[in-house]
């Protein structure tokens, strides 16, 4: 085995040990059928909206600024929902190793 191959092999092992490389079946282990993905996307949007609206309500009650923070957080919650769905298909990448 020449030096380069040995290095690649050790690098691969080290990366696998550190969990930097997702194994091929890594995230794909979640249900991949159309229903699975559709329901997951729905739940992600719904939950981001719930958190956004809930935060807006709570802050408004606390600061007495109804309905302004509610409106702001409603929009932010929608954006977070869209981002959750985007993440579903394009998971975050590690900044270094792609």
């Amino acid at each position: 085995m020449d030096e380069r191959n040995g290095f690649e092999e050790r690098l691969r092992q080290a990366r696998a040990r550190e969990g930097l490389d997702k194994r091929p079946d890594g995230r794909g282990a979640l249900p991949q059928g159309p229903w699975g993905i559709g329901l997951r996307a729905g739940v992600e949007v719904f939950s981001a909206l719930v958190v956004g609206i809930g935060l807006g309500f709570a802050l408004d009650r606390w600061l007495g600024t109804w309905p302004w923070l509610f409106l702001v957080f409603f929009v932010l919650g929608s954006a977070a929902g869209v981002m959750n769905v985007y993440r579903l298909f394009n998971p975050r990448r590690h900044p270094r190793g792609k």
């Binding site: 719930v50 935060l55 977070a80 959750n84």
Partner: peptide
């Protein structure tokens, strides 16, 4: 704020 809401939405989802 969007990232924070997205992070908290894990609990709900």
């Amino acid at each position: 704020p969007v990232e924070i809401i997205s992070y908290f939405s894990r609990v709900v989802s």
